[in-house]
Nucleic acid binder design. Sequence first.
DNA 1: GCAAGGTC
Length: 925
Amino acid sequence: MSGGGRGGGMKVLHVAEKPSVAKSVATILSRNNGGLRTREGRSRYNKIFEFSYSINGRPCHMLVTSVTGHLMELEFQDRYRKWHSCDPADLFHAPVHKFVPEDKLDIKRTLEEEARWCQWLVLWLDCDREGENIAFEVIEVCTAVNPHITIKRAHFSALIDREIHEAVQRLVEPNKCFADAVDARQEIDLRIGASFTRFQTMLLRDAFVIDFTTDDRNLVLSYGPCQFPTLGFVVERYWEIQAHEPEEFWTINCSHKSDEGIATFNWMRGHLFDYTCAVIIYEMCVQEPIATVTKVRQQEKLKYPPYPLNTIELEKRASRFFRMSSEHTMKVAEDLYQAGFISYPRTETDSFSQRTDLHAIVQEQQRHPVWGPYAQQLLEPGSGLWRNPGNGGHDDKAHPPIHPTKFSSGESGWSQDHHRLYELVVRHFLACVSQPAVGAETNVEIDIAGELFSASGRAILAKNYLDVYRFESWGSSTIPTYVSGQQFVPTSLTLDSGVTRPPPLLSEADLLSCMDKEGIGTDATMHDHIKKLLDRFYATKDSNMRFSPTNLGEALVMGYDDMGYKLWKPYLRAVMERDMKAVSEGTKSKAEVLTTSLQQMKACFVDARLNKVKLFEAMAVFFERSNRSGGDEQHAAGEVVRPCGLCQESDMVLRRNRDGNFMVGCMGYPQCRNAVWLPGSLSEAVVTTNICNTCTPGPVYMIQFKFRPLEIPPNYNANHLGCIGGCDEILRQLIEICGTGSRIPARGRGSSAPASNVQQSNSRHGEARHSACIHCHQTGHSSSDCPSQVSGSRSARRRGMNPQSGELSVPCSTCGTPCILRTANTANNRGRKFYSCQSQECNFFVWEDNLNNVTGGNAQRGRTSVSASNTSRSGDRGRGGRGGSRAATATATFVSATGEPVTGRRCFVCGDPSHFANVCPNRGS
DNA sequence: GCAAGGTC
């Protein structure tokens, strides 16, 4: 028995979600009620606190302990645990059960031991759906040993005295609806995750040469309702970049130098894509280059400090300021939290409760050698530096924003990242309670020949919070003084060119924002999903902390996209979230949601499997087929031809492979790889009821073959009743003459055409005969061919980036990598083909029509001036020597109105710094 | 060997 020295009264067992909450609750409740005793439970992390207390006037002996998050896990029954134990589609209805995993058994035993002698069980789990679900796990364990225990739920929104005392006097019933919502979520996640993961892993892993080093582990191509949409964000941005078509634009810049300094005036039209227009306007300005100041405006601008820090912001800022991964940030934050230096790091809350003693937190930091003086200044009423923190609008009702809880000037065991993160938390907190920075901005507008230009300068009047928040800056710049009506001659007036740039790859902070916006994962799990992309070789992170998909990640997304499925989009999760909400509000039952949602997902799964050729094709764009043959095709049932003589366990069936070639393979694949490949010239093959009377083991059913007459020698009959058992000499000869379809030619990325899929479509239609289209519920076609479905993004992506069919390829003149032909989809150039370099590092770009001939073709487009564009980085690798080299319509007048050479800019057509693109001799028209 | 969610 545990305990000892117990006081009298009713015995009440309190269980919190984590040890820290148990400690806080016990400390608060015991404060004025005599001694708080602590003793060990069976788990070393989860202590038991004991003290006396009165609940509604009734004296109680209180025991407060904790779990560590979920106590139980959901798993398939043993019979379904092994990957080859069942068809993955069975996982949508295979029995599942909840159990306490090995590492939680200690906690379970503590609960059992303590619950046995208590009359009440009070649940202090976090007040959210997961917390309610954990509450029911605790109830299950406790009532198993003490069926008569009275169950109560404490509702609290913060770990502060008043809340906790009130909660314990106003106990309520636990909410089964909340718990049910989580049960449904868990079951759906498990079933979808396991089925799709097994399916795509078994289908693709052995079928292609995927050469990622996996330190002895088998490569797993996992699917999950959070990880896949996360991958989707990465791939989508990558495609956006790939499909970006650089467009040349023109802008007029003006500068003015006086005794007081330089002002740079920007054209208020921004930039124009129409070269002719830009030139005309520019000529006007040059001919009458007198600037008149039309407006001088001065105003005060404030730059506000950030909101109080929550988990996502902590991760984003640590990534931006220190290039720390979100996963590492959370690990370091957890260390700091465990050691008591910062508050709980997993919180959505970004506003402080009115009751938080913010001054006390600042006070502690006054001792710090670096930011201590700032903290002191903050507390001086005369400084006027203090400001009550802003409210970010989020509150998880369980935890305050992340803030320092203990002073430290650095501990000996801290790594550099521990120092940095603690400093970030402290400085962020100090910034939150500081006045905004104040700046004086001057805006000057001028008029040159009717065109408006503007320049601005800023002087920082008070840095305020920026003094302590060294991670942010606010630039100041001075410009000469101008007065309205003043006239001057610009020092320079230039017509400059530029090209539109694609958006950058997603940074970790961007990715977190996407996930946050679309509800993918929780603040406590987002970093896990990001890490999973890297662990699964779906994405990589470059030295700038930006994410690109790997070939594997891109192929998987592309495969599902080509099926017309949004499995890689956040919608699925959004639908689930809506269902969960309905369950938690009691408007839908758990069973109802599970039934419909699993039914839909299973239909989707079955359809995806019928369309697996899309996944194969997408993979084939990037990977070579392995000679380990084609994956998980054992589920494509066919007609039985004979018992397998090799494994002597399964039948051999007639099938067509993904390229439409016939083969007879063992049902026991992949354990048994016995196969007979049939001639490539076959157009039809049907198993008959005729049995061969020579071949063994039998029965060996004969096959009615129909060959394509033009593909076999004239002395052979196109129709042939044959046997695959080895007795058929004609079949043997035709196999020798025509070959078989057992090898699919290897394809590098975009180097040759995808195999014709006409025959696969036929076979797919055949399979689809038995299953209704998921979209329109009609038979006769599969969802990917459903006429009711038009996938916008899919077709956009196709227009943008599908590898071409292999007839043309140009080497990149910058880096030599073969360029892929794409089709532009921007307003000015829709349908126009261009080549661009595949390499991320290289920005090579050229229009296809400029490669061959410059004449005509583009006249229908508004913009006719640009032939080959090339970004400034490509330097001298333009299309020199090719094309019309038509003389520019004007000369160097256009470079600078004052005749001054302009440095640091070069022609983006040929890279020559001596002229701009508008006068480039290499430009076409 | 599969998910995502708690938390140590």
